[in-house]
Amino acid sequence: MEKLSSVLLVDDDSTNNFLNELLFKNLSVTDHLLVAESGAQALGLLAQPTGAPEPALILLDVNMPGMSGIQFLEAYQQLPTTQQAATVIIMLTTTMDARDLARLDELSIAGLVSKPLTKEKIDHILQLHFQRQLPAHT
């Protein structure tokens, strides 16, 4: 499988980040996995050219202290459009709460995935948004 150029994980829960990092590495989805623990940090990463390619996929936690996932999105939409077009944003939520779902309808995101992230869910995202598939045996 062709690896994604870069993936950005945005979640204030470091344990969750740790588990997701573990998952991505095990699945060999990308060679460039960026992790931000807040929206602000994520925006900083995106604004600061590190030489690494722009993330093809951003996995964004909804509920974060400080800048929430939604506030991040609002800020993100201020960035140049070329950058946005190349990036698929998937939101992560702990509960499929109706209030959250209603809010996310209004946001320009590619999808919504409930925590915890699993191999099956990543495979589904790859198929849906990148026309790729994880190898069956891994």
Partner: peptide
């Protein structure tokens, strides 16, 4: 709401861990 939301994340983490 908070309980269901905030408790869910750590228990999910625990499960993952």
């Amino acid at each position: 709401y908070t309980a269901s939301h905030d408790l869910k994340a750590p228990i999910t983490n625990i499960e993952g861990l």
